[in-house]
């Protein structure tokens, strides 16, 4: 069952950019691609926990700002020779608003320091 919650306006996230959402179970990065798709991933690179929300977004990938690992926004998988995976969460845009799924956000394993 999905429980969509309104997070913010699409325009609050720059195209080819990201913003961070705080949750009780750690931070989630919300990405917006050049063609206005949105994706939600744990805001921690599988390599050294770099904040993915601060990376450069290209196509449907983001490059981690710490050591240039490239992570697929669709699967959360590290691309190329690197191995690792970030948890992804349902996200969508409706009427210019970004929606995330509360059920998923609450069901995930604790990945960061709980606030």
């Amino acid at each position: 069952m999905t429980d969509w919650i309104d997070i913010a306006a699409l325009d609050d996230v720059p195209a080819r950019g990201a913003r961070m959402v705080k949750t009780a179970l750690g931070c989630v990065a919300v990405f917006r691609t050049a063609d206005d798709q949105v994706f939600a991933l744990d805001n921690a690179c599988p390599h050294k926990a770099g904040p993915l929300a601060e990376g450069i977004v290209h196509g449907t990938s983001v490059t981690c700002p710490l050591h240039n690992w490239v992570i697929s926004l669709e699967t959360g998988e590290a691309q190329g020779a690197d191995e690792g995976r970030v948890a992804t969460y349902p996200a969508r845009v409706d009427g210019g608003r970004i929606l995330l799924d509360r059920t998923f956000l609450q069901a995930r394993p604790t990945s960061g320091a709980a606030a």
């Binding site: 913010a8 720059p14 961070m20 959402v21 705080k22 949750t23 009780a24 609450q106």
Partner: peptide, 16 residues
């Protein structure tokens, strides 16, 4: 300045 803040803060909601 708002770009430097979290887009949303859901941490105050009870985690079930």
């Amino acid at each position: 300045t708002e770009r430097y803040q979290p887009l949303a803060n859901l941490s105050l909601e009870a985690a079930e």
